[in-house]
């Protein structure tokens, strides 16, 4: 009787131990596969995403560098353009007109007898005519009606065309010889005064660039 009781007691005990062993081993295994493994996967995904973002950021940084080069290139050309346009008049052509007057006086070209009668102040008349190039270069026209020797007029045109501070382009030209065979003739000439551009405003969009 005692032997049977002893056997039963061991059987139950061993069963309990086996059950505990089974459950006890299952818990960490379940935790490993259900909690730990997905977390490792999430971490790997996050790593890949961080690397991708790093690569994209590097690409954008490189793009930003190239854009700065592009901007530098533009400003370099703008600098060359500024140097090139030192020979063009400002938007106010008054200085250029003053220079033309000085050249006329230096070349001994006078007002026509008709202009003297009409008491016109000087031989240069400003007009509203503007000439525009496709990419923004502009010129204003003045008309010169003067009287003098052909050689003086040639010298005046040569001086105006070789002027360094301004650019004068001769437009339509009419010369009428003196009917009495004298040496002084009447000249009517259109002169275009080429005007410099507003270089800082060229190609500047309404939205300012981001800092």
């Amino acid at each position: 009787m005692a032997e049977i009781e002893k056997k039963n007691e061991w059987g139950a005990g061993l069963l309990a131990i086996a059950a505990t062993l089974f459950i006890g081993a299952a818990i960490p295994v379940i935790l490993f596969f259900v909690v730990y493994k997905p977390q490792v996967q999430r971490k790997e995904e996050q790593k890949v995403r961080t690397v991708q973002l790093g690569t994209q950021l590097d690409e954008q940084m490189a793009r930003g560098g190239k854009l700065l080069e592009l901007q530098g290139e533009g400003e370099e050309v703008a600098k060359s353009l500024t140097e090139l346009e030192t020979r063009f008049a400002s938007s106010d052509v008054q200085n250029a007109i003053g220079r033309l007057l000085a050249l006329l006086n230096a070349s001994n070209l006078k007002r026509t007898p008709e202009a003297v009668v009409r008491r016109e102040k000087d031989p240069i008349r400003r007009t509203d005519m503007k000439d525009e190039f496709p990419n923004g270069l502009q010129a204003s026209m003045v008309t010169i009606n003067c009287f003098g020797k052909w050689s003086d007029f040639v010298n005046f045109i040569a001086a105006a065309e070789s002027e360094e501070k301004f650019t004068f382009v001769v437009g339509e030209f009419y010369a009428e010889g003196d009917r009495n065979g004298k040496e002084e003739h009447t000249f009517l000439v259109d002169i275009w005064i080429v005007q410099g551009r507003n270089i800082p405003a060229i190609g500047v969009a309404t939205a300012a660039p981001a800092k």
Partner: peptide, 25 residues
């Protein structure tokens, strides 16, 4: 950075291209 580049790119390109056009002219 992308927003900055997207905003700057057309501005810088336009400026450079227009300045080059003006210079060529």
């Amino acid at each position: 950075k992308k927003a900055e580049n997207d905003r700057n790119e057309p501005v810088f390109k336009l400026r450079r291209n227009e300045v080059i056009k003006a210079w060529n002219e």
